[in-house]
Design a protein around this nucleic acid. Sequence first.
DNA 1: TATTGATTTGTAATCATTATTAAAATAGTT
DNA 2: AACTATTTTAATAATGATTACAAATCAATA
Lengths: 137, 137
Amino acid sequence: MNTQDLIKKFRKNGYKATSQRLAICKLILSRKDHPTADQIYQVLKEEYPTISLTTIYNTLRILVELGLIQELGFNEGSIRYDPDMELHINMVCSKCGKIDDYKAENIIQLWNTIISDLGFKPIGQRIDIYYECEECK
Amino acid sequence: MNTQDLIKKFRKNGYKATSQRLAICKLILSRKDHPTADQIYQVLKEEYPTISLTTIYNTLRILVELGLIQELGFNEGSIRYDPDMELHINMVCSKCGKIDDYKAENIIQLWNTIISDLGFKPIGQRIDIYYECEECK
DNA sequence: TATTGATTTGTAATCATTATTAAAATAGTT
DNA sequence: AACTATTTTAATAATGATTACAAATCAATA
């Protein structure tokens, strides 16, 4: 999603398209490592020295509401943000917490089987696999 | 798992079988609603008025280590504890946070297919489905 | 460009969890 | 049953992530 589309999306939903919001969007939508709010803050501080963590949190909440990203709560106590809204598996290293997305072949089949049994369409889903990554072994 | 087996399990792993630990175990292993540490604390305070949250957390950590329960971090900021270590789906209400376990019929087969593609045996997994429960609708 | 209301920011507050440490309880041994 | 070394508990303080608040700033519209 490019900047113009983002601006439109914000305005259509009654939100102002501030430079901070656009910067946060561009960052989170481009990253695949599921950063925390603080990690986003640390990066954006360089370009926007007065940006505050509150703004990061507020913007992330809006992006969740607009369906652009997904929140993933983990056991270490922090929430990570995932811009991949398609069906996928989060490969989570139990030691270092690193996360990679994994698009398995049969996952769509698995998913369709599950939801056809449910009888209704769920709002969303989350599939994690926990393992020990190469660096940690 | 009965009390005697629990005592054996603790001792075999170098942990003392204190009454607090046994009470926490019995409670968490019998509940299906994935309680938080504080919810467990609130219940056990009745029977053990001097029990502390620290003890709850310490014991839960041991139970995770012994493979008896699973930690599930959620977005509202709290960790919930799930005594069901078998493959199952957490049906999570996006509004009230209620969680029910759901054992779908064909999941295990499909899941095994996905796992075998990985080439290694994962430590664990987690499958959530988010929806709006009856009471919240 | 002026106005109005939303947004940002810095600070303080909150909540869950962890660290610390003296006192109490346990398991193994006499 | 008592002894003792060691672990565990429990109370408090500390930490870290997130949220609340209020004054200053900015975006959108006229």
